[in-house]
Amino acid sequence: MDLLMLFIAAIFVQNYVLYYFLGICPFLGVSKRIDSAVSMGMAVTFVMTITAVVSWMINHWILIPFKLDYLQIVSFILVIAALVQLVEMFIRKISPPLYQALGIYLPLITTNCAIMGLALLTALRNYNFIHAVIFGVGSGLGFTLAIVLMASIREQLDLADVPEPLKGAGIALIVAGIMALAFTGFSGMIT
């Protein structure tokens, strides 16, 4: 029950993009078409799940036992960078079609605050291992939901008569604002 609530909260109530403002760059950059938004969402979910596992292990097996918490930021960022590289090489070897679909998005993810944010939030909230994994998957799916919704709205938006200066990022942010407002409706559903 606890786990289900955590999972739903991560997707809807504390949506990664619309509540924590994490992963804004890909959210604005890769949301022009639905199919690329889906791929980006999948890539992020994938890396987030692995990050949740690895960052939890680093935090609980190395940083906390040896009282090295001041190395948290440095070690997380380096591990994430290395991890993304490894995942990229691994996918390229194992499944060329998957690489075709996700490949170009993986390097973009390294400096994505969504991934670093996940590692930091998991550490900050003292999640146990299972909670950390569920939080990772849920956050990734929440990001996917937000970016796919955004892309489907933006595809329609192409046909609309948007004032010249608002075209592109301006209107995208305003749309995101309205989406955030709609998502506020989910608050309070978690007990």
């Binding site: 619309l18 200066p165 942010l173 995101a176 309205i178 506020t184």
Partner: peptide, 24 residues
Amino acid sequence: IMILPAGAFITLGILLGIALAIEQ
């Protein structure tokens, strides 16, 4: 609403529009 996440997105969106309009 201005303090909620929604307000952040909408305000920044409008500011970007204004900045671009001035630039143009």
